[in-house]
Design a protein around this nucleic acid. Structure first.
Lengths: 196, 196, 196, 196
DNA sequence: CATGAATGAGAGTTCATTCAT
DNA sequence: CATGAATGAACTCTCATTCAT
């Protein structure tokens, strides 16, 4: 029984990710998600308070897993540079591996009502914390410049990764996303200007 | 009186920008936009084919003006560095000046149905072209590095600006956006790493 | 001026007949009728109280002319048989000549709201009277049978002509309508059964 | 409980027949039909694709039943004369029994958009076929005259019955419809002209 | 726990009619 | 008389949510 419930819970989340990824949050009908999950419409409301809660749970679960993996890997990397490199790689690889995850994260998060957006940004907060702690560490070790605020740097890092994935999604994923890691890392570290 | 008065057209666009900025495209009811514009609901349909067309026109007009200003200013700047600087400043200042514009641009563009997104991204194309031409010029003049593709660079620039504005919007604009220009410019040019 | 008014009045009626004939009363928009008549929408309301009044006037005018012609011709025919023949011929020829008239008469009259239908059937009354007086005359002269009520006979005559025109209209008028006069006349007079 | 209960389906059809019969197709609001059927508006869309589909189904069901009864009775009648008599009687009795059916059939069918009319006339086709086959049989047996086309005859029969019912409906049904059967039959067979 | 038929508020859009010019 | 931009009531259809079974 307990097992069965968890199966359904997962099935609904998977179905939601698929449908929302395909048609977007607003056009994703509960009835379609139910059908995709092989579940009755009413059943969804046994596991989730409402449609918004479903999206929230979806994001929470998927992003939560990603964040905890990321934390682990970042902790294991030695230098701030290594940590940054790892973060870029994982962000891109994860997006590439799970297209629905990326779609939902990138596109669907933006819409949504005030309060939903608020809740979602709380979830993002964890990710931001990881980025910022890497930057702080780099600054402390004298590797990263201190004349620019950590927040500005964090926005560059997240914004660039975000936009990179967005572009890739809109391009119908015709190229390898994760292969861009090195260039982006280079850009982050040394900027546009030719050295010397 | 000019037929289909331009005043009304503008009033509707303004009202749409305001309402959409406040509650998002999907929750922005035609009836509310009409009330905000001091116009009957039916009147909106004299000026716009439908709700989607209204959003499209809104973006087209606002973004179009911005783009043409941007083109002019960028053309007048001497070096690629100056041009890049100008672009950053204008992006942030424009967003700061017109909150509704920024809101719509940042948030609402992402949602929307497949075909709307398609049309909107065509409009963004112009902006991307400007950014990319600055980069190309910098590469040709030996100022910017050539070992990283222009597209990757463009995504960093646009993504960072985009995320910076998004953050500012979500923070309820408690700080000056345009004052960040210099730092962002520095970051773009020289990266995170402390020189020497 | 007076002349001009009459021109517009006529133009609107013609336009209404054309548009209604094409798309039906309910789908015939005032704006389209106005455009067809080269007149502003508001102008229509200078000549007609409302849309319903326009249809009524249209029918009144067209049917009125037809009825008065019919009366004249029937009066000139000698025998009840000749009169009946004339009536059949004129009904079919008139429908064939003016497709819009037929369309409106046949199809559009049926719909309409309770009260409109009431008013229209008053107009039909004149036509019914003509038919019934022919029948009565025939009965008096001992030509037509007296064991069947005049009303029943009238309904046969009108119903048959009506259905004949309806069929022709729905068939996209691929055959000559007026050429059927003789057969219908025969049928009316002697019925289906083979004589002897 | 049967899914999408047949009861509700029937209740909606009955309500539709009643409301449409009262105010006509165009003025028959879904909301009123729903109220009459003791059903929510949305429920109607569980059973019918849209308003037009509801009308179509209504006609299909009611007319379909009538046609199949008619076929049975006509097949059981011996001579073409008996068959014709049966057809007249059933047409009138059925209309008299179910006023809504008659109303919809007579009045509402005529209006409607091009495509709806097309679909409806396909349904009428079955009725026409029955009439025509009776005529053909009569011709073959040497009972009916062969010098007039079957189609012309069919239009007389259908047109007369149709008009008879229409008249009766407009008269607010102040007389017995079915009692007219004999006279109409006589008229069809022998025509207006007094024998001898 | 599970179902899915039923609900009904809500939203976009149309179009006959009005009225200031 | 004429205009046509503006009006806003009205209507169909959608879909998240509920609840009796």
């Amino acid at each position: 029984m307990a097992k069965k419930s968890i199966d359904k819970y997962e099935a609904i989340l998977d179905a939601a990710a698929k449908i929302i990824g395909e048609v977007g949050y607003h056009k994703a009908q509960i009835s379609k998600i139910a059908r995709e999950a092989n579940v009755a419409e009413g059943t969804i409301y046994l596991y989730f308070k409402n449609k918004q809660d479903l999206l929230l749970s979806l994001f929470q679960k998927r992003y939560g897993e990603f964040i905890s993996n990321l934390k682990f890997e970042v902790a294991n990397a030695k230098t701030p540079m290594d940590k940054l490199k790892k973060l870029i790689t994982m962000h891109l690889e994860n997006s590439e591996r799970d297209r629905n995850f990326a779609q939902v994260t990138q596109i669907e998060l933006r819409q949504a009502d005030r309060d939903l957006r608020q809740k979602l940004s709380e979830l993002l907060k964890d990710y931001f914390d990881i980025i910022e702690s890497i930057i702080e560490e780099g600054k402390e070790q004298g590797i990263f410049r201190k004349d620019i605020s950590t927040k500005v740097m964090r926005r560059m890092i997240f914004g660039t990764l975000d936009e990179t994935v967005s572009s890739w999604l809109l391009s119908s994923r015709r190229y390898s996303l994760s292969r861009l890691s090195n260039d982006i890392f280079e850009l982050f570290c040394y900027g546009l200007v030719k050295p010397e």
